[in-house]
Amino acid sequence: MTDRFVLLAGLLILSILGFMTLGAEGSWSFLLPFRGAKLAALMLVGCCLATATVLFQTITGNRILTPSVMGFDALYVLVLTALVFGLGAAGYAALPGPLLFSLNMGVMTGAGLLLFALLMRGGRGDMVRLVLTGIVLGLLIRALTTFLQRMIDPSEFQTIQSASFARFTFVDRRLLAATALAALPALALAWRMRFRLDVLALGTEAATGLGEPPRRGQRQALVLICVLVAAATALAGPVSTGFAGPSSFFGLVVVSLAHLVTPSPRHAVLLPSAALIACIVLIGGQTVMERLLHLATPLPVVIELLGGLLFLFLLLRKAHG
């Protein structure tokens, strides 16, 4: 297991080096902070989404789900569309970054927490019902978005199109700090839950028997998921093409890769492994996009193509061998 982590760490360093140095022209006193901020943003977003997906899969006991099934990405795009619809593309572009960030962060955490609070109140925590409700609401949000987008002028649609994909071309350092402020404590709390998550993964009865009734852990995990996804999405935009249907794909691929590369039921292994892989995939994808594709393609598209193919390749090689 250690050698796998050494391998991952090596890959991460390699991708960081590639990202920082490839095509570097001009003075390092400009490049270092500029690319450094992008790098920090990429890694933060990677850790957030990987951790949120691991938590979500554990508490739902379903390895094909990611938190975006609950419509977080869709909510971001709806807010974006509504703003462009109401203010026009120029009005939207004039909005100050921090305001937009707080608005997104507020709407996403607010809606998420409200939903979870309503659903987990009283009675048993029926996770299937929770996920179904999330899917239904996500579809509702998507329908409203499509509806609004149809009434928007094609030239203004361009704004939405480019802003509804995650991008790291320019990172506002104030927002980076704000994101870190929200995300780092949540990541630390998720790490503290690692042993309890192992027990929760055993299933309701076994976990209860071991003195870890699932409801409390589920509730705490949901709050963390909400904060992590909202922070990552508010900083960068959805890391999703929206084409994989309700299950966005980045978290799914990253966690599936982690299961393949470091197979272990322990979250003390799974959490860091998924986070490392997420960082490698994001940084690598961003490097490919900047240097090879010259920014002509949104980052999530690159990630989904490369990450998905990598997963299928590794899995099938394992299945054949």
Partner: peptide
């Protein structure tokens, strides 16, 4: 899902 996602990403590309 991953297969569908990869094709979907290709479509978006």
């Amino acid at each position: 899902l991953v297969y569908g996602g990869v094709i979907g990403a290709g479509v978006t590309f």
